Amino acid sequence: MKNITLLYFAALREATGKDQENYATAAHTIAELYAELQQRYTFPAVPLRAARNHVFCDWHEAIAEQDIIAFIPPVAGG
């Protein structure tokens, strides 16, 4: 298990009711982590950007202890 910090924005913040949380996960990659969170919070299956330690990253990037992971939903606007 790895202890990480999760940051939530927009619809994900609404789904969780919080903008961040400390979280323990057995996930090895960002993609595995999002799948785990989808089960817990019923997150939407929409294209998102992921960031690890404040830098956009690939969905297959490995997660390490004390990482800060953010999921950023698409932005709509006009």
Rank of each mutant, 00 (worst) to 15 (best):
61 E>Q: 14
63 I>M: 04
66 Q>C: 03
77 G>K: 02
38 Q>I: 09
45 A>M: 08
45 A>W: 01
43 F>Q: 06
25 T>M: 07
24 A>G: 09
42 T>R: 14
35 A>R: 12
37 L>Q: 04
40 R>H: 10
19 D>K: 15
44 P>N: 08
78 G>Y: 08
25 T>G: 07
77 G>T: 01
63 I>H: 05
49 R>T: 11
12 L>T: 05
59 W>T: 11
16 T>C: 04
75 V>K: 02
64 A>T: 11
1 M>L: 11
9 F>V: 09
30 I>F: 01
36 E>M: 06
3 N>S: 13
29 T>W: 01
73 P>F: 01
20 Q>E: 15
35 A>H: 11
38 Q>G: 03
30 I>G: 00
13 R>G: 01
14 E>K: 14
62 A>F: 08
25 T>D: 07
58 D>S: 12
66 Q>T: 10
67 D>A: 06
74 P>V: 00
49 R>P: 00
55 V>E: 15
4 I>G: 08
52 R>S: 09
40 R>P: 00
17 G>I: 09
48 L>P: 04
57 C>E: 09
17 G>A: 09
52 R>V: 15
34 Y>E: 07
65 E>Y: 05
7 L>W: 07
8 Y>V: 06
37 L>C: 05
14 E>T: 13
72 I>R: 00
15 A>V: 06
78 G>N: 08
66 Q>A: 13
20 Q>N: 15
2 K>I: 10
63 I>Y: 02
6 L>H: 09
25 T>H: 03
7 L>C: 09
43 F>P: 02
11 A>Y: 05
